[in-house]
Design a protein around this nucleic acid. Sequence first.
DNA 1: ATAAATATTTAGATTAGTCTAAAAAATGAT
DNA 2: ATCATTTTTTAGACTAATCTAAATATTTAT
Lengths: 218, 218
Amino acid sequence: MFSQSEENYLKAIFHLTTAEKNGISTNAIAEKLATKPSSVTDMIRKLSDKKVVSYKKYYGVALTNSGRKIAAYIVRKHRLWEVFLVDKLDFSWDEVHDVAEQLEHIQSPKLIQQLDQFLGYPTQDPHGDPIPDKDGNLKTIEKCLLSTLAKNDSGIFVGVDDSSSDFLQFLDRRRITLGKQIKVIEKEDFDESMLIEINSQKMTISKKIANNLYIQKS
Amino acid sequence: MFSQSEENYLKAIFHLTTAEKNGISTNAIAEKLATKPSSVTDMIRKLSDKKVVSYKKYYGVALTNSGRKIAAYIVRKHRLWEVFLVDKLDFSWDEVHDVAEQLEHIQSPKLIQQLDQFLGYPTQDPHGDPIPDKDGNLKTIEKCLLSTLAKNDSGIFVGVDDSSSDFLQFLDRRRITLGKQIKVIEKEDFDESMLIEINSQKMTISKKIANNLYIQKS
DNA sequence: ATAAATATTTAGATTAGTCTAAAAAATGAT
DNA sequence: ATCATTTTTTAGACTAATCTAAATATTTAT
Ligand SMILES: [Mn+2]
Ligand SMILES: [Mn+2]
Ligand SMILES: [Mn+2]
Ligand SMILES: [Mn+2]
């Protein structure tokens, strides 16, 4: 059994791993969890003793197979709970994360099994992120940042990079919701802003926004 | 904010209070929480500093108004989650307690508000226990132990005293479920067992069983 | 290749929650 | 009223998780 803290470390390493291919650095983990590097070193050593991470002093850390499976299961729980909150309890997509951070630590295999069924075996959470299956397998869909699209390219809005409440609320105000068709009408060289068409109307979005929207090209 | 451990102490004192009218003893709390009396003394002192219990050395402890409200809210959460598990996720009534022990500590007023609505504002949990309202008020229904009924008395089965998994499963096997009409056909003086009628059939139950079933007389 | 900057680890301290063993207070029995 | 028993508190220790400050290793820049 793993403590809540241990679970949070495993999850942080799991998420950092998808971006980095080398060992995950102590500092990166500390930043992600808002702790100090010295605390990370201590915890890494403990997780290493428990065989869920492999660790060589000064050379970063990586999940073992068993560690990856545990981490994926926590992510699975987190995302299933987010679906529950949005689909069943009328939360909006910017309100669910903090509650899911707590719910993901509830220990009960039956609970998650039944919740999954109750929700109709969803494959994605409210932010478009994939829900790992029971074995920890995560199927990622083909997607790219809106900022990488060329003029006249189009596709479907399938996910966000930044999922802060502020950004999600901004998207709500602009009626930019998951599943919508987006077409690039114009790209501005000067500030890299773009004019897009969505909901059959045109709007200008900044480079920063375009860098946080994932598109599945079509 | 209160830690999980502090919440468990408050809840234990709350539950012990309904039975006892004097101050709750250190030993009683220790037994309920499966800890040592010395640990209880330490925690009581902390809760006293936080003004949620009143405490005089050697003379037991009692909840303050604020403490009672916090404790009732934890019980509210526990029981709402039990309803969720049974009504929505097909748990049986003997499987819910341990999961609810975890879920009751999730912090999110909106979550509980929405869950309450989603469940249709239930007033009782799967074991027949009342769900405190938002202000911590608990309406108890008129009920008595089956063992106190006389021959030919009858009533409705509305709750259990012992809610261990074993006992609940026993009731399931005997088709003794909440809401059923029960009539006392015969009482045996020798061993205090009784013959009852339920589901239009007769069965004998021991004194111990009769002492754990609550009946609303009719 | 060396020095400076950065990253990581170690050493030592702190807090929450628990425990055991011993001391002190309250309760019960003669 | 005194003594024995039970209950409660205190003293001191331990573990998990964290921190700060100092030491050490690695990386980067000259
Ligand atoms: Mn989330
Ligand atoms: Mn999400
Ligand atoms: Mn329960
Ligand atoms: Mn219950």
